[in-house]
Amino acid sequence: MAPALCEAANMRDMQGRSVKGRTLWGTDIQPADANFRVLVVGGIHGDEMSSSSLVFHWIGLAQTPPSDMSLNIHWRFVPSLNPDGLFAKPSRRTNANGVDLNRNFPTPNWARDAKDYWETRTKRDPRRWPGNKPLSEPESRFLLEQMDSFKPNLIVSVHAPYGVLDFDGPSVPPSKLGRLYLDQVGIFPGSLGNYGGIHKRVPVVTIELPSASRMPQDAETRQMWMDLLRWTSERLGPSVTAATHSH
């Protein structure tokens, strides 16, 4: 990822801080007549560098939307939710407190399920420690505040390296984005997909890039973006239009 790409993204301080006090940066791309809100989050796991890079590339693409879109989308991009994990040497999945942020969201029955899942299914894998309680971490609290204030109609969460597409929540999921095909991997206690998609009823598209350290080719990055736009317009657009007309 070139420094110019980062500079062109016009990042602003989103008034969130990591455990170690690092700024949580984000940017908004908002047409005047926006009628749909999408929150795109990368780097929930600090060792999935490609996920943050993809978000920066998509910020560039979002600046020139296709003219034939039925939706005017207000995008909010947060490329790196876990900068402490990203800048650790070596980079690490968890935040500075050793918590897997993608298991720290307040899903129903978290107290019962999250610890049990961690102990029995992950065999106490330290990379997947959910924390002592939901929202124990400033980074997960920040994302929850973003969801509450921005009120996205869609959340896109970018990960690596499983090379699949996952989906939680209402609506028909996208069958593929670029070369990534839908493979719904299950419901995890405390995950963003579970919290946003199942509990809050906001569709959550989870992208798992094929490599944590290597970006897809530019053409592939663009194809995934165009597929996301097409699906959003076809599947989520009509419900927004109907809601607008009913008011």
Rank of each mutant, 00 (worst) to 15 (best):
M69I: 14
N35V: 01
W75P: 10
P90N: 14
P90R: 14
N97L: 14
R93L: 06
V55H: 01
W118N: 07
T64N: 12
G16H: 12
Q30F: 02
G21W: 12
N72E: 13
L24N: 06
P66W: 06
D116K: 03
A34Y: 05
M49K: 15
R22W: 00
V99R: 00
S80R: 09
D28Y: 11
R93K: 11
A96R: 06
G98W: 07
A114Y: 01
S50M: 11
H45A: 10
P66Y: 13
G16R: 13
L86M: 11
G21M: 15
D47M: 14
D113L: 01
P65S: 13
V19E: 10
W110M: 02
S51L: 02
N102Q: 03
R22F: 00
R103L: 04
V99S: 00
W110P: 02
Q15W: 15
D84M: 03
S53I: 08
M49G: 14
G42F: 10
S67I: 14
A32C: 12
H45P: 06
S52K: 11
N104Y: 04
G43P: 04
M49P: 06
D68K: 10
I59Y: 04
F77W: 14
T107V: 05
R76I: 10
P79C: 09
S53H: 11
N104I: 07
N97S: 14
Q15C: 14
P31D: 14
L81K: 07
R22S: 09
L101R: 06
Q30T: 14
V99K: 01
T23K: 15
T64F: 10
A62V: 03
L101G: 07
F56K: 07
A62I: 01
F87D: 00
A34D: 15
T120H: 12
S50W: 08
T23V: 15
P90V: 15
D100W: 02
A62Q: 02
R92F: 01
D47W: 02
P90F: 05
G16I: 00
R17C: 13
V38A: 11
A32E: 10
A62D: 04
D113E: 09
I59Q: 03
W75L: 08
R17V: 11
R76M: 10
V38P: 04
M14Q: 15
A111K: 10
T27P: 04
T64A: 12
S53Q: 13
H57Q: 13
A114E: 07
I44G: 02
K89N: 12
F77Q: 12
M14Y: 12
V40Q: 10
K115N: 04
D68S: 13
Q15D: 15
V19H: 09
Q63E: 06
V99Q: 02
V19G: 08
S51T: 05
H45G: 12
A88G: 03
L86W: 02
D100N: 11
G98E: 10
L101Y: 01
D113R: 02
F105L: 09
F105V: 08
Q30K: 15
M14W: 13
A114P: 08
K89G: 00
F36I: 03
A34G: 15
N102H: 06
R112H: 06
R93I: 04
D68H: 11
A32P: 13
R22E: 01
T64C: 09
Q30S: 15
G85L: 08
P79E: 07
W118E: 09
R92M: 11
V55I: 13
R112S: 07
A34K: 12
K20L: 09
N109F: 00
G21L: 14
